[in-house]
Design a protein around this nucleic acid. Structure first.
Lengths: 138, 138
DNA sequence: CTTTGTGCAAACGATTTGCAGGATG
DNA sequence: CATCCTGCAAATCGTTTGCACAAAG
């Protein structure tokens, strides 16, 4: 369910990215999923019905979107790069059974990172929680 | 500075791993560094002076060590797999400037992961802190 | 002596790159 | 119409695999 087209166009233009159909599609796709897909999954999804974008273009679009801060990379599994259009601070939960990744709202976890050992300047942090999701129960 | 040889041999045997020179070397190397090296860095380090181990062997040793719980994989950067012989629970700090990774003792950070949303069973969690290390100053 | 591990080289999968043609602002 | 982007295919990088030989227990 694509959201407001104008909004996406504005986001891209605002970041000085040319609005090409491919780039638009990649970002729109990411905005409409909460499953943190890999580049390959996005590509497959985009080309499901009709050919929309090439592999190289999806990769370069993701890179561009990441550089301008519209998309972030999520690293929770060995050698797998996932993407997320939710760039607001939040934590992640990963089901050890099925691999599903879910967002955890920032306030759901309380963290107090004092001023660690002297010399380390903290800029940001995030928590990764591992466990079992609802469907994988115990 | 290799630590007690006996200790390493015991650790391997205790996990039912044959004590080969290559496997011993990989684990010893990891025990003696705190920089969370990649497989390639370990390989280079081992073969610095004399050829010690082949690439394939380092990879398979790391996998074996990981399976028996002597080593863990650390994922903090895009597509980079690092290894750590410190398997006790702890957090990580990554300098955004130089990429250095440092361990943060478990008690240095206080986290309260309540029982998130119903259905999610928490097994473990860890915090990743991003910032600047001492040498990269402010 | 049985089983497991090593080394080599080939195979792989994901990501990147070079470049010519096409689209955007 | 200058610049940036796309698509293709080839190149690259880290990791894995198959297999014959060697070593460990």
């Amino acid at each position: 369910m694509p959201r407001d087209t104008q909004q996406i166009v504005r986001a891209l233009k605002g970041r000085k990215l040319r609005v090409t159909p491919q780039r638009f599609a990649v970002y729109a796709n990411l905005l409409d999923r909460t499953d943190h897909p890999t580049a390959e999954q996005i590509l497959d999804d985009l080309n499901r019905d009709a050919p929309t974008s090439s592999q190289a273009t999806v990769y370069s679009s993701l890179q561009a979107l990441r550089e301008v801060g519209l998309v972030r990379e999520v690293l929770l599994e060995e050698g797998i790069r996932r993407y997320d259009a939710n760039v607001a601070p939040h934590h992640h939960f990963r089901c050890e059974a099925c691999g599903t990744i879910e967002d955890i709202a920032w306030d759901e976890i309380h963290v107090s990172v004092g001023r660690l050992r002297p010399g380390l300047q903290v800029e940001r942090y995030e928590v990764t929680v591992h466990g079992r999701c609802e469907s994988c129960g115990q």
